[in-house]
Design a protein around this nucleic acid. Structure first.
Lengths: 337, 337
DNA sequence: TTGTAAGCGTTATCAT
DNA sequence: ATGATAACGCTTACAA
């Protein structure tokens, strides 16, 4: 593999001058520049990335931590982030934590080992105390996940309000016995949604005791089990706010293979407005997140921090959600057209 | 940021000895080892990755090239690859080409710039002549995509045979006028499927002229348009083999909002057996790929090449597919239970 | 068992 | 405008 030295020799010039050409710096005669470019071409020279990184102390790479790439919400998020980052000349590396505390910390080490310049966390399973020290090693930005009064920028929606509106909608459709379903991890995000759920119940005079919080379900399979469980063990439940279109889809699938009708016997709300939620029969009422806006803003904020290592501030950027009403909750058939 | 030198000083030993401890090498007294570990701990020392890479000429990182992460097939593939690779101590970086020739070549540069030790290509849009030179810089393995007589390992299914079986199944269900649908790019993989399509027609006495090859559709939206197009412009078509569950799902969605019935008026076969294909109403007949096996084998082969830089051989590893028959093609209702 | 010193490929500083 | 030289932080012969 050719090095800068080889190029310099072949062109009859010094490494310094070659380096100037590589980095588009001034003070190189056009004639010599051409000679060097020729030499680089002839040797198939490409600058060695490790050497540059070592020398410059920068990697031009950022890491995005997420639970799992197979969740379409995170898939879309990373897709947008990657596009935005690569326009600014940054590489993105995708880090799946699978909601493991250990993996999350392992990936944060990328900052210490200088493999990345900054980190975006889209989920957060460790206590903040364990995350905080890593701020010494480079900027961290939270996207989607958020917590109060922490010295990092946060880009997200108001999940409490979103949950409130979803639950209010269920109540308006006539549901009296509601369940809130969330995944295995009880993150801050889940907590926010739960608060919204409870507030809505309160505001509409439904006592919490008749309503349920169910922890665990995360995917389609879980949703299927959940439906069977509700039908058998809690048949009084008539409305469910799930934190996930997958879970909602699983419930609807299983319902279709039973004698319950959705939304008549059970109304269901999902989350994320994934393609799936439109395609199901009935289609799924859900909360739409402004994925692209979240992604773009997050990358923008991180890149800004990379350029101006300011004293870290905990500014929140809150984006709007949208309740998309569809067949899984709409009991009175509206007249279309 | 503490360096190895700082640790050495604090422990009153040399860099060499510290390095030995870092790399778990023998010939260090237990007592000194402890002293060093203590010093590392006290300073919060972490080895600098760029320096190690530069010195050792290895990155312990592999790149996986794929069209887009939001396609669940590739999402699942990368998920499995990442797990397998990380067990062997390798990092994975995900590279979305979006089917762009330029991006594909850009990412292959990672091999030249020594940012990765090896590359897995799960799709291939450039001519082989452009890819070939990169083999100088490190091992490349093809997974999913394949071509004949190329000096790289290939791990894949027999797409021609899979297509053949899918089309044969449609014919057995009574379809007489078939269409084969594939995406924008006409890769080798698509070509294989098309051959299977044509062979099946031939073997069952259907002349090609009555049947169609449609290029372009890739996602749910395209599938919806496609259905409308077929209904309006080619209403004689009664069976479609799409290369994608998404396209199939889009067609089914649109059909449900029309007066055509699936499978009676039009039968549809998807590809990949994604969750979506089970959830649709009717559920989608599809081809199941052994994603985990493909992923594991691919990583295994690449890692082997990384350890033994043998003269490159073009061995193919072919895995079995499975035709999953569901409601989108099953005209005679079978009695269940 | 431990240490010295060279070198991986760049780039920044300072001369010239 | 160009070049010599010293880092960046680590590993590895080789010496002791």
């Amino acid at each position: 593999m050719a090095t800068i030295e080889d190029v310099a020799k072949l062109a009859g010039l010094s490494r310094t001058t070659v380096s100037r050409v590589i980095n588009d710096q001034p003070y190189v005669t056009d004639e010599k520049k051409q000679r060097i470019l020729h030499a680089m071409d002839e040797l198939g020279y490409v600058p060695n990335s490790s050497a540059r990184r070592l020398r410059s102390q920068r990697t031009e790479t950022i890491a995005v931590l997420l639970p799992r790439i197979t969740n379409p919400f995170f898939g879309n998020l990373i897709e947008s982030m990657e596009q935005k980052a690569s326009k600014a000349g940054y590489q993105v590396i995708v880090c799946q934590t699978h909601d493991s505390k250990k993996k999350e910390l392992d990936y944060l080490q990328l900052l210490k080992t200088k493999q990345v310049d900054g980190i975006i966390m889209t989920s957060l399973v460790n206590d903040w105390e364990l995350i905080h020290p890593y701020l010494e090693n480079g900027p961290i930005v939270l996207c989607n996940e958020y917590m109060e009064n922490k010295p990092v920028p946060m880009i997200h929606m108001d999940h409490r309000q979103a949950a409130y509106e979803a639950v209010q909608h269920l109540i308006e459709q006539g549901c009296k016995h509601l369940a809130f379903v969330h995944g295995e991890q009880e993150g801050h995000l889940t907590l926010e949604r739960k608060r919204g759920f409870e507030q809505a119940l309160l505001d509409h005079g439904l006592t919490s005791s008749e309503n349920q919080v169910i922890q665990g379900p995360m995917d389609v399979g879980d949703g299927r089990q959940l439906f069977s469980y509700i039908k058998k063990e809690m048949p009084h439940i008539d409305g469910v706010f799930t934190g996930s279109d997958e879970v909602a889809a699983g419930m609807i699938y299983e319902a279709a293979h039973s004698d319950w009708k959705i939304p008549e016997d059970l109304s269901v709300v999902g989350f994320d407005n994934q393609m799936l939620s439109l395609l199901m029969v009935p289609s799924i009422t859900t909360i739409e997140q402004p994925v692209k806006k979240l992604a773009d803003k997050t990358v923008e904020v991180l890149l800004k921090q990379l350029l101006h290592p300011d004293p870290v501030r905990g500014k929140s950027h809150v984006f709007d959600h949208k309740l998309v009403v569809r067949g899984s909750t709409r009991k009175e058939k509206l007249i279309l057209h």
